[in-house]
């Protein structure tokens, strides 16, 4: 008896510890792999909208090279020298001796590829915002309907349909979105078929059933007597939902929103089909752009060097981002909960 108790405790404890270990090791792994990019681009990465862009910088000639050059080509004129001075600053920032491979010795032009995460970061944030703005009110409506309003004969079938929808793999949402939904969105809002808006809406539709199902379950935990005592005070259905059910189920509802948010932030397949995969800050909601998970999925295969560490930098940003959002949501909404 005591022994079982002991084993049970140990198992429970190690399972809990395992989660922490996985979490920290992911964090550390991401950070280490992203470190070259973090060191190279710093926080500027977050606001730089260039991705995989080759820039040329001239590096100052060493004394020996200048001499050699002067003797070789007398025709070389002053303007070249001026340029050298102009680029001197950039070079200080970007250039380092290690990347000597890229320096063309004959011209002293150093080519470098720079990576900035601004576009996918903005794409991720905006598509997630659209998805949440679209899905939260509808999911709450569905949940209230299922928990409080629907007649008995509808509760089961609609509930089942919602759960089935929640179980559909995201790639199917992507395909459906691409072939059926995107043209509709384009007809209504104009712009291009594959766009931030299409991706955001399909993302919203995708997380909708999930959010609705969990919210409904949370609402269903409100004890009948509690609702009855509100009705017994003369409350209407709407007032009971607003004053009793929502506050009572608050924790579960916020949990469902947070989980859905996490899903939307990290969703890859559906978004890859729909967002357009264009590295451009979207001029409007109906322009194509790209999101972090899509960048990662599209580029990991052939990435190396700076690109690889930049991808890890993006992944790291996504990780920290999710962490902050979830952490602050928990802190803000659930404080003072007993």
């Amino acid at each position: 008896m005591l022994n079982k108790e002991f084993i049970f405790k140990k198992v429970a404890f190690s399972s809990a510890t395992l989660i922490l270990i996985v979490l920290t090791s992911i964090f550390i792994m991401l950070f280490i792999s992203a470190k070259p990019a973090i060191e190279k681009y710093g926080l500027h990465f977050l606001v730089d909208s260039n991705w995989n862009k080759t820039i040329e910088t001239k590096i100052p000639l060493t004394q020996a090279q200048i001499l050699a050059k002067k003797t070789k080509t007398q025709s070389s004129d002053n303007s070249d020298m001026n340029d050298d001075n102009l680029f001197a600053d950039d070079t200080l920032v970007l250039g380092d001796d290690a990347s000597g491979d890229n320096v063309d010795v004959s011209t002293n032009i150093k080519t470098d590829t720079i990576f900035g995460g601004y576009v996918p970061i903005v794409g991720t944030i905006l598509s997630t915002l659209i998805a949440m703005a679209f899905s939260i009110p509808i999911a709450m409506g569905i949940a209230v309907f299922l928990a409080e309003i629907a007649p008995d004969f509808l509760i089961k079938p609609v509930g089942m349909a919602i759960e089935l929808l929640a179980a559909i793999p995201s790639i199917i949402y992507g395909m459906w979105g691409l072939f059926y939904f995107a043209p509709i969105v384009q007809n209504i809002f104009g712009g291009s078929q594959m766009s931030l808006l299409t991706a955001g809406l399909v993302l919203g539709i995708m997380i909708l059933p999930f959010m609705a199902a969990i919210t409904r379950d949370a609402m269903n935990t409100t004890p009948d007597v509690l609702k009855e005592s509100a009705y017994a005070m003369g409350a209407t259905k709407f007032e009971v939902v607003k004053d009793i059910i929502f506050p009572y189920a608050k924790v579960g509802i916020i949990g469902s929103v947070i989980l859905s948010l996490g899903r939307a932030l990290g969703e890859t397949m559906a978004v890859a089909f729909l967002i357009g995969s264009v590295f451009k800050v979207p001029g409007s909601l109906t322009s194509p752009t790209i999101s972090i998970p899509v960048v990662l999925a599209n580029n990991f295969g052939e990435a190396s060097g700076d690109m690889m560490s930049s991808l890890f930098y993006l992944a790291f940003v996504l990780f920290v981002f999710s962490f902050i959002i979830i952490g602050s949501a928990k802190f803000y909404f659930l404080r003072g909960r007993r």
Partner: peptide
């Protein structure tokens, strides 16, 4: 009711 039902 039998059990107290304070509102949240």
């Amino acid at each position: 009711f039998q059990k107290p039902t304070p509102f949240p």
